[in-house]
Design a protein around this nucleic acid. Structure first.
Ligand SMILES: [Mn+2]
Ligand SMILES: [Mn+2]
Ligand SMILES: [Zn+2]
Ligand SMILES: [Zn+2]
Lengths: 144, 144
DNA sequence: CATGTTAAAGAAAATCATTTTCTATAATGC
DNA sequence: GCATTATAGAAAATGATTTTCTTTAACATG
């Protein structure tokens, strides 16, 4: 999903397209991983300097409301990842925190009619991405 | 899952079975819903009085480590529900916060080998339980 | 391209959930 | 019982997030 499309979505909802938002949004989208607000703030500071942490919090709030950011609760910490607003699932690497979208959905929702009305569902897979797998093998091979 | 089994699990891990823990644990298990630590504390106070909030926090921490409590992130709040430690999925009612276990699992994990190694997954269904569905229909029928 | 309107930025302060500290108590094993 | 040690609970500390307030800049309008 490209920046221009997101910008038009913000625009549609009467949010202004400030320079700060564009900077944070670009960093967030390009990271490909889940980040805490503080981590995102750090990433932004590396490239551009001085965007307030408050501004980062506020953008994450806006994106979450619009369905463009998804929160993950890992070990008591809340992380966010940028997301398109079409339904999909996620694979999260527990090492590097990279997130991969999984667009296959078994649409199993209807199978659970007996519990009540299912409005939506989410499925998260947790593990280790191929990149980190490789690294971990190399680390192990160095052990005594 | 009955109380005695949980108690033996705690015991195995060298946790002491205090009166306070038994009280909080019983309340937690019987609630059938997800609760914030503060909400659980309130529930406990209704029946027995005076168990410290700190104690509630500590029990939730212990249970989570043992895989006997599952956290849910709903609208920025972290809720916990008591859980058996066998893999299963959940249906959460967005009205009353009751949680239903779903023991069917499609074991689809292997299908996603291409993203990396999947250690575990979770699937959560969100909606409205039959009880709340009924209530909501009644409420609607009262509208002008 | 002014200009008025208003959302948003940022700094500082406030809030509030959670954790830590410390002492007294009670659970456990012998 | 008795010694050992984890835990309860009160109070304080911490720290993430939110709120407040003033200044700035985005946007619509003509
Ligand atoms: Mn996504
Ligand atoms: Mn469960
Ligand atoms: Zn990885
Ligand atoms: Zn319900």
């Amino acid at each position: 999903m490209e920046l221009e499309l997101i910008k038009s979505k913000l625009h549609e909802s009467n949010f202004r397209l400030t320079q700060e938002r564009e900077v944070v949004l670009t960093t967030f989208m390009n990271s490909g991983q889940m980040l805490t607000p503080a981590q995102l703030h750090d990433c932004v500071k590396k490239e551009y300097n001085s965007v307030g942490l408050t501004t980062v919090y506020r953008l994450i709030e806006v994106l979450t409301k619009l369905g463009l950011a998804t929160p993950f609760l890992i070990d008591g910490e809340i992380y966010y990842t940028f997301c398109s607003d079409h339904h999909h699932h996620h694979f999260v690497c527990l090492d590097c925190h990279k997130v991969k979208d999984i667009y296959e959905c078994l649409e199993m929702t209807h199978k659970y009619d007996d519990v009540g009305t299912v409005n939506y569902h989410r499925m998260d897979l947790y593990g280790h991405c191929k990149n980190c797998e490789r690294k971990n093998i190399n680390v192990k091979s160095l052990e005594p």
